[in-house]
Design a protein around this nucleic acid. Sequence first.
DNA 1: CCTAAAGTCGATAAGCCGTATCGAGTTAGA
DNA 2: TCTAACTCGATACGGCTTATCGACTTTAGG
Lengths: 144, 144
Amino acid sequence: MLSQKARYALHALIVLAEHTGDTPMQIADVAEEARVPRKFLEQILLDLKKRGIVKSTRGRSGGYLLGKAPRDITFADVIRVMDGPLALAPCVSVTAYHKCEDCVDEATCAIRKVLLAARDATAQVLESRTIAQAAVTARKAGWA
Amino acid sequence: MLSQKARYALHALIVLAEHTGDTPMQIADVAEEARVPRKFLEQILLDLKKRGIVKSTRGRSGGYLLGKAPRDITFADVIRVMDGPLALAPCVSVTAYHKCEDCVDEATCAIRKVLLAARDATAQVLESRTIAQAAVTARKAGWA
DNA sequence: CCTAAAGTCGATAAGCCGTATCGAGTTAGA
DNA sequence: TCTAACTCGATACGGCTTATCGACTTTAGG
């Protein structure tokens, strides 16, 4: 399951993607439109900023904008930032690999083989879906 | 990520699948072979028993056996028992569906569409891999 | 230049979950 | 009947999730 944080992040990014215009959007507005507790959203946007997914300007009339084109922000990107690897075990993670402690022989591990296939299937989907696509869907429906 | 509990369960089931013979296998032996803390394994086997994945006999010379053929126990079965739904959100779970609280319109939710595709991809893999297959792999390698 | 408005950042806290252990209870074979 | 095995509820402990607070920094605009 995704964490609440990850779901909030996705909602917030869709809101930011729908916000056309070059003036940044303020946290309070994002929080309201995305229905995210404002203080919690601060943390989320900070995390996203560290990874370049959003960018911010400080001071009066500051705010947030997407850090790259919406079509270059995949669901996988967002989920990895908020919740960590997509993989079901560390030993099959591409982005955060590390050996299982109890694993006797990784190359022949029966469980690992399956989890690796599962990871690949999941990644295939989540890396191909972008915030841009989601924003279009959301706009068509009147909301996200 | 899978919980430790789910990983333990998979290991234990592979051990049970390798245990040919109609006499039940005792917890202590399963614990040792699968490298699982014994008391923790008790809970795990109890959960698996409730779902019919293993069966037990009590009393002296009691123990555990698989509750069905290894080829009928999928990874998905096991993971669902231990960790809950495969889905990334309740609203896209087949086995434990319930509506998201904050969801405005599920039919048009941009995020839901993607998570549903992800669930289907994951389930396709995990529902097609069985303990029987894993046990064969494990035996070939000398261990699980 | 000063102030109000905005993002930044570290601390805190309640509640739940994962991991694991204990001990008493129950069952049934020898 | 005794003892080895499964059963089951209780407990503990830490860490994570989900927030919330308040002080700090930055900057536009008057």
